[in-house]
């Protein structure tokens, strides 16, 4: 897969695709952004220390992992904002914060510290987002809303079908990985019966080829792998299938 040419590369013959992707390549930070962000971070942390929010934040993060850390930052940010507002004046606190920052060798002192930035907009109180699940299917049906401009809500059955297809494929993959190609094949057959022309037909075919190979039927595996490459030469699966087809 890693050997596939990227669409932004000259290998892609579609110039518009290449140009569009190329235009997104450079998103690097503007000059000065690194120092400014560091200063703001330092101010926020120092302000949190000033108003004694440390224990709450650390306690909140004690859960574990990045999600908990994010929750803690929300608590922290909220309390900083509230604390600063309650203080009414930044004069004394600001002086103390400034001392804290300039005293720290880790903080660049060249850039001025902007105290009006102490209170960034409070983050929305949205619950943490779940990690995407192991399924391939998007949460919505794959029908592009722009293709049907009159429909804003996509039909649910289609989405359910895709979720089913994705779940069964995941199961079949797991069975194959677990050394049980026959069960994997059986799951795949059930999938074929239930969703004959699904969105994930390519994935189903790739898995069927892998199963054939695992069962020792290399002739079938090679033939179908070649047919796959002929049918979908640009598929992300193509390089793997090409290897399988040409493997001695």
């Amino acid at each position: 897969m890693g050997d596939q040419p990227r669409w932004a590369s000259p290998m892609n013959e579609d110039e518009l695709e290449r140009e569009l992707l190329g235009s997104l390549r450079d998103v690097s930070p503007p000059p000065g952004a690194k120092g400014e962000t560091w200063n703001r971070l330092a101010v926020q942390v120092a302000a949190a220390a000033t108003i004694g929010t440390v224990s709450a934040a650390v306690h909140a993060v004690a859960g574990s992992g990045a999600g908990a850390a994010l929750q803690a930052t929300k608590v922290l940010t909220g309390k900083v904002v509230a604390g600063v507002a309650l203080a009414g004046s930044m004069a004394v606190g600001g002086w103390w914060i400034h001392r804290q920052i300039t005293a720290s060798p880790a903080v660049p002192v060249g850039a001025p510290v902007a105290f009006e930035r102490v209170a960034p907009p409070a983050p929305p109180s949205v619950p943490p987002v779940r990690e995407p699940e192991e399924i391939v299917a998007p949460a919505r049906a794959p029908i592009d809303p722009l293709e049907r401009p009159t429909k804003t809500v996509e039909p649910r059955p289609r989405s359910d079908l895709l979720a089913l297809e994705s779940r069964m494929l995941t199961d079949a993959r797991a069975q194959l990985r677990g050394g049980d190609p026959r069960s994997s094949l059986s799951t795949l057959e059930r999938l074929r019966a239930r969703v004959p022309r699904g969105v994930l037909m390519q994935e189903r075919e790739v898995l069927a080829i892998q199963i054939a190979s695992a069962l020792g039927d290399t002739t079938t595996a090679k033939r179908r792998a070649k047919e796959f490459v002929d049918a979908y030469p640009e598929s992300p699966h193509a390089s793997q299938m090409r290897r399988l087809a040409t493997d001695p």
């Binding site: 926020q44 993060v61 990045a66 850390a69 803690a72 930052t73």
Partner: peptide
């Protein structure tokens, strides 16, 4: 900030 707070974890 999340990194700073959650580094211990």
């Amino acid at each position: 900030l999340a990194v700073h707070v959650g580094w211990g974890q």
